[in-house]
C-alpha cells in the first residue's frame, strides 16, 4: 500500500496489547447480558445462547488471562499503539464515523438525495479533497444516480426530503 506519512511513532518497544481485550470484553458483555436476561425462559429458548455463551466467556477469560500474563512478563503493555492516538488517520476515521452517524440521524429531514450530497462533500473534504468542482460534481452525480436508481426506478422507501419534494412538484414524478 502507498503509506501516507504520519507523525507520533511510539518510543515504547513493548508490544501494545490493549486492543486484544476489546473484542473479548465485548463478547463477554453480550454473552453475560444474554445469559442474565434469559434466566426465566424455558430451556429451548435459551439453549443455543447458553451453548454458545458459556464457552465464549470461558475462552475470553482464558485469552485475557494469557494476555495479562504476557504483560506481567514484560512482553507487552496495556497500550493501544496508534489505535486511539491523536493521529491524522484516527481524526479522519472519527470524523467520517460522526459524519455518517449525523447523516443517518438527519435522514428523515434531509431526505436521501440531499443527505447523501452533503455527507459526500463533507467526507471527501475531510480526507483532503479541496477542489470545489470535484467535490460538487462527484457528490451531485452520486446523489442523482441514487435518486434515479433507488427512489425513482426501484421505488424504495428511502426517506424523502426537500429535493425529492421539489422534483415531485416540478416534474410530477418521484417515489
Amino acid at each position: 500500500m502507498t503509506d501516507r506519512t504520519d507523525e507520533g511513532r511510539r518510543a515504547d518497544t513493548r508490544e501494545p496489547l490493549g486492543a486484544d481485550f476489546i473484542i473479548p470484553l465485548m463478547s463477554c458483555g453480550l454473552a453475560g447480558y444474554y445469559l442474565a436476561t434469559t434466566t426465566d425462559l424455558v430451556w429451548e429458548a435459551r439453549a443455543a445462547g447458553v451453548a454458545v455463551g458459556v464457552p465464549l466467556i470461558a475462552m475470553c477469560v482464558f485469552h485475557m488471562g494469557r494476555t495479562l500474563y504476557r504483560i506481567v512478563k514484560g512482553e507487552g503493555s496495556f497500550g493501544f499503539g496508534e489505535m486511539f492516538a491523536n493521529t491524522l488517520f484516527n481524526r479522519q476515521r472519527l470524523a467520517l464515523g460522526l459524519l455518517t452517524a449525523a447523516f443517518i440521524a438527519a435522514l428523515p429531514w434531509t431526505g436521501t438525495t440531499l443527505g447523501l450530497f452533503l455527507v459526500l462533500i463533507a467526507g471527501m473534504w475531510t480526507l483532503g479533497v479541496t477542489s470545489i468542482r470535484q467535490l460538487v460534481t462527484i457528490a451531485a452525480v452520486t446523489a442523482a444516480t441514487v435518486y434515479v436508481l433507488l427512489i425513482y426506478l426501484v421505488n424504495s422507501r428511502l426517506p424523502q426530503g426537500p429535493v425529492e419534494w421539489l422534483i415531485n412538484r416540478t416534474f410530477g414524478i418521484g417515489g
Binding site: T100, F103, T112, L116, L120, M124, L127, V129, I138, T142
Partner: peptide
C-alpha cells in the same frame, strides 16, 4: 481512497 472511502461508506450505509 480520498474519493473512494466516502463513496463506499455513504453508499453501503444506504
Amino acid at each position: 481512497t480520498k474519493f473512494l472511502v466516502p463513496l463506499i461508506i455513504s453508499l453501503v450505509t444506504i
